[in-house]
Design a protein around this nucleic acid. Sequence first.
DNA 1: AACCAATCAGACCGAACGTTCTATCGCTAA
DNA 2: TTAGCGATAGAACGTTCGGTCTGATTGGTT
Lengths: 202, 202
Amino acid sequence: MASDERSARPSEARLKLLRTATRIFYAEGIHAVGVDRIIAEAKVTRATFYRHFPSKDDLILAYLREVHRLERGMVDEALAANRSPVDPLLAIANSIAQNIQSPGFRGCAFLNAAAEYPDTNHPVHQELTAHRQWFLDTITTLMAQVHEGTADPAARHFVMLRDGAMAAGCLSDPTLVSETFLRGIEGLLRINSERQSTEAAR
Amino acid sequence: MASDERSARPSEARLKLLRTATRIFYAEGIHAVGVDRIIAEAKVTRATFYRHFPSKDDLILAYLREVHRLERGMVDEALAANRSPVDPLLAIANSIAQNIQSPGFRGCAFLNAAAEYPDTNHPVHQELTAHRQWFLDTITTLMAQVHEGTADPAARHFVMLRDGAMAAGCLSDPTLVSETFLRGIEGLLRINSERQSTEAAR
DNA sequence: AACCAATCAGACCGAACGTTCTATCGCTAA
DNA sequence: TTAGCGATAGAACGTTCGGTCTGATTGGTT
């Protein structure tokens, strides 16, 4: 039965739409680009667009989910090549640093979206909040394997450095930002490994 | 001569416009709010608006300059009560932490603007870049009084933590974010003070 | 051959966008 | 008093916004 393809139905047009939207939304912002622009660059008609996405908001959500999928893939790669417990964290940090230095880097898609959708009840805001929670949870789990006692604050520290690096990466020299970020992560992981002795005095 | 008031001419209407724009732009974003909304809430007519601001972009620039003025005032306060060299840095960090926890906090106005105006040639982008450079320079100068050798990377580290804290402050628990931020700053300043002995081996 | 879903082409909708216009009002200086 | 000027009010500009609708054309399945 060839008609039973509801699991594998990428629908060429939908793919083009999503690819185009991802590129333009990330590069130029969400409110700044209209539906006309996207269907023009995707070489697709209005009717086709509204067949696949009931509204622009649905396309925006699909865009964020696509970026989430890509980032999750990056994390999974770092997880797959895990030798010692701290390696995945360093691998993720290196991946972030590499991302910042890559051409066309425009910051964190989710932080950018948060700036445009401050209303916490808006689906877009909730989508990005969910992504951030997933990332924090992932880092916390990894951090717990380095030092259980301070996993939570250490993970929050990691994410804070990441957020700062991603935010500043396209506003000043990406190389310097990456260096600062990696130095910060190294320091964080070093302190977290050494803390066992000093923390006992508290 | 009462006509010679070109230095002190706030022009009630202009003040209302700027105050309203600052409040709404910061709370809801820039592209998301139109001129209609601002003149309605400021209780001012279109003609009056366009008398004081040639275009919406000019109002946006005035908004950013206003926020810059406020932040500069905060830094000046921290500078005024300087006892030891590290005190101003801690005062600034505390002020940031307090800001994050204050009601209505919506992140960094300049990072939010950067998300909406990625074009580096746009006046708005250049305005926020100038602000960020000023802040980095300020922190670098202060950091140089703690330890000259590592002032530059330490200042970048400080700013990165600030950016991360400001970005995340309205996306998760502000109290936790503030704590994480202050812990990070404390660690940074402590390391920077202790580094003299360990850095010699490099 | 007949069908059906997807795509295309493009006119069309009301609303909102940033901006300009005309005209009136109220104050102050000459 | 009057001339001038900034603020007021509000209609209107043309464009773009997100979204709908009609109708023709395609291409694979039955």
